[in-house]
Design a protein around this nucleic acid. Structure first.
Lengths: 250, 250
DNA sequence: TTGTCTTATACGCAAATCGCATCTAACTAA
DNA sequence: TTAGTTAGATGCGATTTGCGTATAAGACAA
């Protein structure tokens, strides 16, 4: 247990264990939420226009600091409720961003979360939090190559993003694309009852491609996640589609 | 911009933006590393036996606090160097753990990292950091179902784990299994030159299954990641296998 | 030198999956 | 009743996968 070098691992470990880390300066800890839904068949995220310095005028993800007696998930749920006025949507931790100068005011580590909003939840958020704006997210890369994404206004103008929030959005789209076809996240963007066409629209919007209808239908039905409700879509001027419900496979 | 409710999102947002969060108590921020390799065809992680309270006598992942002027990746690399004496291995952020009582001393948020160690790096770590012990990781669930994992000593005894480190290990195995066959992480567990059989052994060890040899070989070769080196394995008493090198596909 | 042992590597199908064109069903509206 | 539109089903060639088996290449022993 004796050490020969100053940098001996054991020494370092004991050093850190003995000294109270409370005396060191700590970074601030925040959560930032990517509130993602679909608008007109395209991915859209809810952003806030920053009024104050820093990055005044730029667009930011809703976020907040993590309380000392708050779990990360609780902090994310709190932001969801307080800044978007919604609850009960799919929420998952995405990645933790810790670049040194990501916030010019001070050192802030941000745990990014991804929330998936069905159309109704997205509309509800826009209504309850009027300062939120739905920005179309353009993903210029195909498949799971990764890369930058752009946030566009309704008029198609590029919205400049604050902090490293462009990176967070890019990570959100990458994660979503990656999980879409082996997990059940796709259903988190749909209402309780939906048609196979709506499910396919979700997949096509997220992946940014078109999919073959019979093949998609087959794969989804074979997966055993879809329970037919027996009732059918209403209000169409053509053959109404069967409505399905997501069944989380026991 | 006027609000009717006390909990109006705009008010909350402005509140948080105006008040200096530096006055709030901050959680401590740490990184914990899952140093994962293979021993005798089984997954193994490097653990430290805790000498002090809390969880004295239990086994913990190597970790350390994040300095105020240190990125998360830098903190993880620092732990890798100072506590395991190695560098140059695959390192990726895993998940951030923030349960309230995960450390009884104080509120500590831990950003977990996964390091993948080829056999040589694992041996080097064991040599440079004698307090590290390689524990076999038993994964009792199949596929990507997820669930608990157990750490076993060389004698097969279950090693009690400190803090929430069992959760971190479980997350590491889940992530690795999930990424193994669509990404190139498998190569991070191999030396620079390796045979197809060694590659298959890595996959089988991580997945906990046996794989069909011709099918595996075909898939790997079709992927375009394998460059034949022209030389062959030495020291076998049978037909020596071709040595390949991983080519990160331009 | 030759035969045996062991593993690498190649080959050959059958089965399953996928992509895709097309056909039929169901509903509205005129 | 008919045209228009989309849902849902069917059929089939191409591709991928699983898996048994044949051949190749080396060491080693007789």
């Amino acid at each position: 247990m004796q050490n020969e070098y100053k940098s001996c691992p054991v020494t370092e470990s004991e050093f850190l264990a003995e000294y109270d880390p409370a005396v060191y300066e700590r970074p601030a800890l925040a959560v930032d939420l990517v509130l993602l839904g679909l608008r007109e068949g395209r991915p859209a995220a809810l952003l806030l226009k920053r009024a104050q310095h820093p990055h005044a005028g730029r667009w930011a993800l809703p976020g907040g600091f993590v309380g000392i007696d708050q779990t990360l998930d609780a902090a994310a749920l709190h932001v969801l409720h307080e800044k978007a006025g919604i609850a009960g949507v799919h929420l998952e931790q995405l990645y933790t961003f810790g670049a040194l100068a990501r916030d010019p005011r001070m050192r802030i580590i941000s745990v990014a979360y991804l929330a998936l909003l069905p159309e109704a939840a997205l509309a509800e958020a826009l209504e309850r939090a009027p300062s939120l704006v739905a920005a179309r997210i353009e993903v210029p890369w195909s498949g799971e190559a990764g890369g930058d994404v752009a946030a566009l206004s309704a008029k198609g103008e590029v919205l400049p993003l604050a902090f490293d929030h462009a990176d967070i959005l890019a990570m959100a789209m990458l994660r979503l694309r990656g999980k879409l076809d082996y997990s059940d996240v796709g259903f988190a963007l749909l209402p309780e009852h939906f048609t196979l066409r709506q499910l396919q629209d979700v997949h096509e919007a997220v992946l940014g491609t078109t999919l073959n209808k019979p093949a998609f239908r087959r794969r989804m039905l074979d997966r055993g996640w879809l329970m037919p409700t027996g009732s059918r879509e209403a209000g169409t001027s053509f053959r109404p589609a069967e409505l399905y419900r997501f069944q989380p496979s026991r």
